[in-house]
Amino acid sequence: MTDQALHPDAPADAALHGDPAKMQISDEVAIRIAGMNKWYGSFHVLRDIDLTVHRGERIVICGPSGSGKSTLIRCINRLEEHQSGDIIVDGTELNSDLKNVDKIRSEVGMCFQHFNLFPHLTILENCTLAPIWVRKTPRKEAEETAMHFLRKVKIPEQADKYPGQLSGGQQQRVAIARSLCMRPRIMLFDEPTSALDPEMIKEVLDTMIELAEEGMTMLCVTHEMGFAQAVANRVIFMDQGQIVEQNEPHEFFRNPRSERTKLFLSQILGH
């Protein structure tokens, strides 16, 4: 992976990953963020964020820790509240109206660094819970959908186990399947591989790549630069709560323009 990042000219593994450029991006706007600011107390974590995400776009957000990248995507489904500016997801404005928040949350899937599976429920129950209780899907149908997505993430045989019995990589794939069961139109990933062993990172990334190939709109906070190269249409670099640079991945890695970006890239790729 590092190898590829060090030599951005090398073609991505086309057979497995497909060619990012060929994937369809529509003109339809999935997420529009305009002039958004957020403070924790008096600490200004997000400063004047403007970001438009089109349907089918795959965006990788990177940056040093504390740069606000996680906070940014957590604002999109209101796990964090923004204090000024607009966030419009799928035409619904995110404001204090709880109905809007619930609507957006049920259409936006999210995967966390620590998976956050429900430990008291089986894998299958983890996947059927939201469809049954939020979407009012009949149990049988929800279970069929869940098995479909568990097969997709290649762990249907674990359906009756509990999360505590699975490896980290398997748990993260279940978390992805759990989100997909809600048939989201947008997926958010908050450092999905940061808590995993190197061996397990690959199985999770493969799942995410497959998802990208199917045209899912994805926003992904990650340090996996190989993944960024393989599937992203756009890489966003954040520092001190601001978007410092964004570009398509090829250019971003080969010709970073800001000094801050250059320094960051040299630090994460330079060993």
């Binding site: 489904n77 796990l79 709880l98 619930d102 049920s106 998976f115 819970l129 209780w133 939020v134």
Partner: peptide, 25 residues
């Protein structure tokens, strides 16, 4: 905290999250 966040992110409202996720644990 992640348990609350995961419940929120799936669109469960307060009472459903409490009943199905938080209180059983």
């Amino acid at each position: 905290r992640g348990q609350y966040e995961a419940a929120d992110a799936l669109g469960l409202d307060y009472w459903k999250a409490q009943r199905l996720i938080i209180l059983p644990q």
